[in-house]
Design a protein around this nucleic acid. Structure first.
Lengths: 199, 199
DNA sequence: GTCTATATCGCGATAGAC
DNA sequence: GTCTATCGCGATATAGAC
């Protein structure tokens, strides 16, 4: 028999999610989490850099998938189209929406520090998209913008998906992007100004 | 004579900026900052919730200005146009780019915790824009999207302004938005797919 | 795994402003 | 007198060093 129970990281994640849900993030100490997972606080910090990070694994898989997808596409489509298609593909591979994922979102929403970490992860997603586009030969400034837009669509789409109805994540991404395009298009005054020679 | 030197908060901000620039954020303790400002660490925490917050005042003025501006506009322009115009107006009221503001940006860029806080402030800006639009009768979902876009334009524009050439902040905001519109419009494949019935 | 720095916050006291 | 800014002390937990 092994000296330690396997998958300490997994047990820590489960313990943390449970405790954060039960008592709230601030009322939970890292020592509590470690105890429930059957390890010491020191071991916790070997697996996760800080108290927040337990809730944000998975992010790196998404980033890797997207970067790979963006760089291996060969079509003549423009960067924005390519990134949104990549997000839809990634969304199709997402695990189903479970009670736990909803709970996780609620925990994050309830605490400022956790919301900050989530934003940092999203910023990192934007950077990954921009870098992948850059490696595909897209101009860096344009890549930066498209990375930000892609990230925003993912953020709003995820939010809608978790909070909402029963549509698939991929479909939610698509409709979010459509709504964004509509908002950007502008009507009346805006259209007039634009056709008057804006860019 | 007053019992305490006035403007403790201001002295704390100055001291913090100096020390963060001299030794770096992590190498500076709150006690150091307080000492240089002539108060105790306990007093520091009465003015700023945590070690990072000293670098992010000013944000609330921007938010108040924008909310006010958005709600008092009367033109028939669509929300996106209104928000960008508001950002340009706010940018026109910004203090000049000084050595200190550049230094402040460099400090923030050099530390992950500070970048997280900056993102949180920007998220709060997006929320403020969305709420102001909501109070102006705009549909909440559309307001949310426009808030996010406005925030992004501000973020990218500020970054370009601080990092770049000699253009005014307002002009930088405008050209950033133009670039965003160009990226969103999409060419070739994207245009074809769109006219094939996407939105 | 142990040791430690320090960020953060609660509490009670103090002194001047109004 | 009440209000407000500050101090000083003490406690706890995160996070990094050794």
């Amino acid at each position: 028999m092994a000296r330690w129970a396997p998958d300490a990281a997994g047990r820590l994640q489960t313990a943390a999610l449970e405790l954060y849900a039960e008592r709230g993030f601030e009322q939970t100490t890292v020592a509590d989490i470690a105890a429930r997972a059957g390890v010491t606080a020191r071991t916790y910090f070997r697996h996760f850099i800080d108290k927040r990070e337990v809730l944000f694994s998975g992010q790196s898989e998404l980033q890797a998938f997207l970067a790979e997808w963006i760089e291996t596409q060969v079509g003549p489509d423009d960067p924005m189209t390519r990134v949104i298609a990549g997000l839809e593909a990634a969304a199709a591979h997402f695990p189903d929406k479970t009670e736990l994922s909803v709970k996780r979102s609620a925990i994050i929403a309830s605490n400022a520090e956790l919301r900050e970490r989530e934003l940092q992860k999203l910023a990192s997603l934007a950077a990954v998209i921009a870098e992948a586009l850059g490696r595909s030969g897209i101009d860096p400034a344009a890549a930066r913008i498209v990375g930000e837009v892609g990230m925003m669509v993912f953020k709003l789409g995820y939010e809608r998906w978790i909070g909402g109805d029963h549509t698939s994540f991929a479909a939610t991404i698509r409709s979010t992007f459509d709504d964004l395009r509509t908002a950007m298009r502008g009507e009346g005054q805006a259209a007039a100004r634009q056709s008057a020679g804006f860019a």
